[in-house]
Design a protein around this nucleic acid. Structure first.
Lengths: 357, 357
DNA sequence: TTGTAAGCGTTATCAT
DNA sequence: ATGATAACGCTTACAA
């Protein structure tokens, strides 16, 4: 136990009054005065692993508590060149499709003392403008789950801001990325549907700008070609429920018949397609038609659907993202790497699947 | 700050090389040298509405572009006492239930040049610890969609950080809040169910710690009492699909029969309850049993469900939140106010409702 | 272990 | 309109 000695005329109340009068913030300097130590001693007390005596530490912490002192991150950032901030740049749809992603990233980053600065990209707005804001905030790194041009990726490198792409990648592999093997998963799905005897395939694709959708649908098309099956009939829409419904109507309208299987670019579309097939067209799914999705989102597992889909291991991907970015931040510059996860086939009740090979 | 340069040449390339050699950041000083003006002139060029001549402005901007200069937000924040950062403190469930909320808040705040610093509160973790982090980052304000104690609210006031609660409020009304009239909506729902002849009610409640769930369920109970109906049978769980399913099993098990109506604390629960009723118990909904939810989330509208529920105007609430917080930030200290929105009854296909009064 | 002092990169004040 | 100069609140050699 240390007894706080009377500090000249600098009592806690005095200092607080002074601060209020000058309407400024509580600084480490104020704490120093109250604790009767130097300002740098206070600073050290807030730096883990600095050399401070027990007694000093206690006095400083007491003073800090008395004054409601909190270190100023802006000032710290200014001379450490570390903001402990990570930019999370997401297209507006990401939070819709992976609602758990943000919470998971936030949790994981928090373990490293990092906080997320959110840059949600409104539909159709310019990523370049968003990035300008990112640079201002001196983030230590960035996670990007939106389409990044080569030039934009180059800017990250020029500015030495480590970046990890989430479920996207650049063709030249010059940027680190965490991805899920969409094409591979799509091939597996196509194989197993074919093995179950489906012949006439249709695809409900996502928007042309979605790289993920492209990859998924290309995987399907490639595999079907390899198997000598007719190329799938293809329609596209947004990644939502309504587009799935519209997609089915378009397929049936243009094809003049119901195909054997419809592969949708994500779960929301698949569910829209499924609902419309059952309720509007009275089609027996999966007896007459197989419908599959992508993602393995929550509703896919609900009893009314029990959707046959491909689950992406979002929590693991989130963890890998954080690990990779923190590694890059620590290492300065490291060779870009890509870590790929596999999607898992969820053998639900909306498609007839052949055996896994 | 003094920059030593080779006497003659202040070209862009020279400066860039120097910066690289000293491995420091591009500063307004560098831009000043290249543009041949003072550092403060550069600063003014980046401040909207400052007095700079056309010519100076052009030279500075050219130099800034050449050097890839971006103002340092940390340094700016340090002496303007404005970080342009807003803390968004959410419990881990918020992003699950209102996936569009984040994107909307982000978009709206961006219009004011504000960015969101995300503090997603892991389940069961201490909000106090999270807040300590909030203070460090010198945010200009905060949106809180998590349970805030009176003491914690007081800390916001002491530190002069404006705060707006989202869909929560403190009893004493000392904190500004945007809320949706949960109790009122619940009363309406109870009234209309009663008007349709339902007598035996059951509730599947959210967790005890959820203020929203409390309010919703209290509204129902109060209204039923007023109508002279028997108090509802009550079970509780988490705000998820599985809890809705479990809730129904518990109700039927403990009651020994199927009630006339089950009011669930949110849509996910209602859908879980509904699916279980139909698929597991082969109950005719709404013929034999009415099931209702809360929120008006996306899946509620899907064909397989067409859930009778109460829709919260989330986008409007988001906009109001931003408006209110920006108002508070601008005003310094203003009287706390509460703005209440009404939920809208979605007359779906899972409940028999009487006429609206 | 502790104190002194020099930055970190900006904005703000005040002359000019 | 422009330029010097003093903050802003902290970390970090370096000295003691």
């Amino acid at each position: 136990m240390t007894i706080t000695l009377p500090q000249q005329s600098h009592t806690v109340a005095d200092i607080k009054a002074l601060i209020h009068r000058e309407s400024r913030r509580v600084t480490s300097y104020d704490v120093a005065i109250v604790a009767g130590v130097s300002q740098s001693a206070v600073s050290r007390c807030f730096k883990p692993g600095a050399s401070v005596s027990k007694a000093t530490f206690a006095r400083v912490m007491q003073a800090a508590t008395d004054l409601d002192y909190t270190p100023n991150a802006a000032a710290r950032s200014l001379n450490t060149r570390r903001s402990n901030l990570v930019a999370l740049v997401v297209s507006h749809m990401v939070t819709l499709h992976y609602p758990e992603l943000l919470a998971e990233l936030s949790r994981q980053f928090a373990l490293f003392g990092m906080r997320i600065l959110l840059f949600s990209q409104p539909r159709g707005s310019d990523l370049g403008a968003t990035l300008a804001d990112v640079w201002q905030h001196q983030v230590d790194g960035a996670v990007v789950a939106a389409h990044l041009s080569g030039a934009q990726a180059g800017e990250f490198e020029r500015r030495q801001v480590p970046v990890v792409l989430f479920n996207r990648h650049l063709g030249d592999g010059g940027v680190s990325a965490i991805v899920c093997d969409q094409a591979g998963a799509a091939r597996t799905l196509a194989s197993r549907l074919a093995a179950a005897g489906h012949q006439r395939f249709a695809l409900i694709d996502g928007p042309a700008r979605s790289a993920i959708a492209q990859e998924r649908m290309r995987g399907v098309a490639d595999r079907l070609a390899e198997l000598g099956l007719a190329p799938p009939f293809r329609v596209s829409g947004e990644h939502d429920y309504a587009s799935g419904a519209r997609g089915l109507r378009e397929i049936i309208g243009r094809l003049g018949q119901v195909p054997d299987a419809i592969i949708c670019s994500n779960d929301a579309m698949a569910i829209g397609c499924l609902d419309t097939a059952r309720h509007e067209f009275k089609i027996d799914v999966p007896g007459q038609l197989s419908v599959t999705g992508f993602d393995g989102s929550g509703p896919a597992g609900w009893l009314s659907y029990n959707l046959t889909t491909l689950r992406q291991p979002v929590p693991q991907m989130a963890q890998a993202t954080v690990e990779m970015l923190m590694g890059l931040i620590g290492a300065g510059a490291a060779a870009p790497q890509r870590r790929m996860f596999s999607a898992k086939v969820i053998d639900g009740a909306t498609a007839r699947l052949g055996p896994a090979c």
